[in-house]
Design a binder for these strands. Sequence first.
DNA 1: ATCCAGGTTGTCC
DNA 2: GGACAACATGGA
Length: 293
Amino acid sequence: MNYAADGEDVLLTGVTDFSLRDTLLCGQCFRWQELAPDVFSGIVDARPMTVEQQADTLRFRRCTVREFERLWMDYFDLSRDYKALKRRFSEDAVLSTAIRFAPGLRVLRQPAWETLCSFIISQNNNIKRIKGIIARLCEQFGQPIHGQGCEPAYSFPDAAVLARLSEQELAPLRAGWRAAYLLDAAKKVTLGTVALDALYTDPIDLARASLRQIKGVGPKVADCVLLYGFARTEAFPLDVWMKRVMERYYPDGLPACATGHPGLAQQYLFHYIRCCEELARPVLKKEKIAAVG
DNA sequence: ATCCAGGTTGTCC
DNA sequence: GGACAACATGGA
């Protein structure tokens, strides 16, 4: 893997084990938009970006090498050895299948506060609506940025900004009961009751307990935040889909080859089972079973 | 109309 | 500890 300036862009060549599409569309992030096949625009840390993939090259449009190293290298988890990781995971048959289904999947390292809010919003919600709520949150309360296109872009609002707002002021987001949870998160982060910086290094259970002081943060949301916002690959989000995976394939727990990074194994399994949902959906609902007699 | 969506909370036992 | 309804929105 090599990177260098190419005109106004940064060009990354020899990229392996990487799919921009699978990585950005698998439900771990909510602010990227596919402009054309394999061309995505999004905003990270108040920095708008358009990225495109062609085979084993990635182009970061209008980007300096310095910015690439400071932000995007980390964000896309480009330093991790996925090849070695996948080799080890593939000792297990189910994981091997899931990896072959989406070999370019990666776990992003997203901004912590944004990730916390995003996964509070995600609870009992669907991805399309999650994206809508987050978009409105940024438009209403974020800072306008001059983007790369003509449309105005907005940063993700700081915790301190949200902490001043009332539930009524959040009503236009149409976030339902989650609005109160967002405000509680904003207050606790602003006051330092929950110190986000410590969560990069705290023992995982301490980090979980810290996040769970926030109303609306239960075990699943806490682990999503730790995995996607802090690269804590020991975290293992158990949502409805992963519960089906565990029930169906791993009644005795994850295989030994996944120890150490269950969160990364989760990523392949989650994507696989969600895309092949006919394998996972319950055959019949209770009512229908009753009706059939 | 009813069910579901990357769950959590409060309230029972 | 586990079970279970309620919670707001919007799409299927």
